[in-house]
Design a binder for these strands. Structure first.
Lengths: 115, 115
DNA sequence: ATGTGTTATTCTGAGGGAAGAATAACGAAT
DNA sequence: ATTCGTTATTCTTCCCTCAGAATAACACAT
């Protein structure tokens, strides 16, 4: 009836356990633009320690590194996305938007008689 | 490449705030078979108080009642699904499986080159 | 009246997760 | 050597959620 209700979906990828989801994805996006994990986590008010844990867990579950990071140097170092992370992120984003588009399309048909 | 990774998605319905998701759905399913909210919550080791809150919040957000419940009587009362809940649950289940089917199909295409 | 087993409702206590502190290591520049 | 700002890592503290307790109301049976 009214456009009052809408679907919201969260897409996660599991191997033996959880290995990728919206949190890591957002983190990667911000690392890409900030070129630093610290700056990335701060920009989304996430504690650095948690950001670091999240990344590490994801890397362990996936089996490859997401960040290439350098420490030290004049500006202290930084982090950028590994090529695999770049590809994974792109794939994930495409996948998510396809899913959301589909979810949007099917929604009204599925719930028109009740919502 | 290997079938090691798979998509997992959670589908929620939002109005102004969250109003329906997998938790409520599971609860409704169990109320349907147990004919009691207490039994339903116990069967999924959820505290009754929480089950009740979950249902109440969902009802408030949706704008209609999910349960028709009777109190008192020899066996203490019970609860069953309202007609609207019945329809909503059916619609939600169909919607979810369509989404999951689609997610499954698209998955390998989206991630074949990286996972 | 009393007993029974549920719904309805609020409150309290404990556990898990997250934020932030603390610390170490790093490497380029000065 | 010292400074600087990051990555890397662990630990403690706090908050929030959740489970379970407690209480009331209910209506049917006996």
């Amino acid at each position: 009836m009214e456009k009052k209700f809408r679907p919201v979906l969260t897409v996660r990828i599991f191997g033996e356990e959880k290995c990728f989801g919206p949190g890591v994805a957002e983190l990667l996006r911000r690392v890409r633009s900030e070129k630093s994990l610290r700056a990335a986590s701060a920009s989304m008010q996430m504690a650095y320690s948690k950001a670091w844990t999240v990344i590490r867990n994801s890397e362990a579950a996936l089996g490859f590194k997401l960040l290439v990071s350098t420490t030290g140097g004049k500006h202290g170092g930084g982090a950028t996305l590994s090529p695999e992370a770049e590809k994974l992120l792109a794939a994930y984003e495409g996948y998510c938007s396809a899913l959301r588009r589909f979810a949007e399309e099917e929604f009204s048909a599925a719930f028109s008689d009740i919502l």
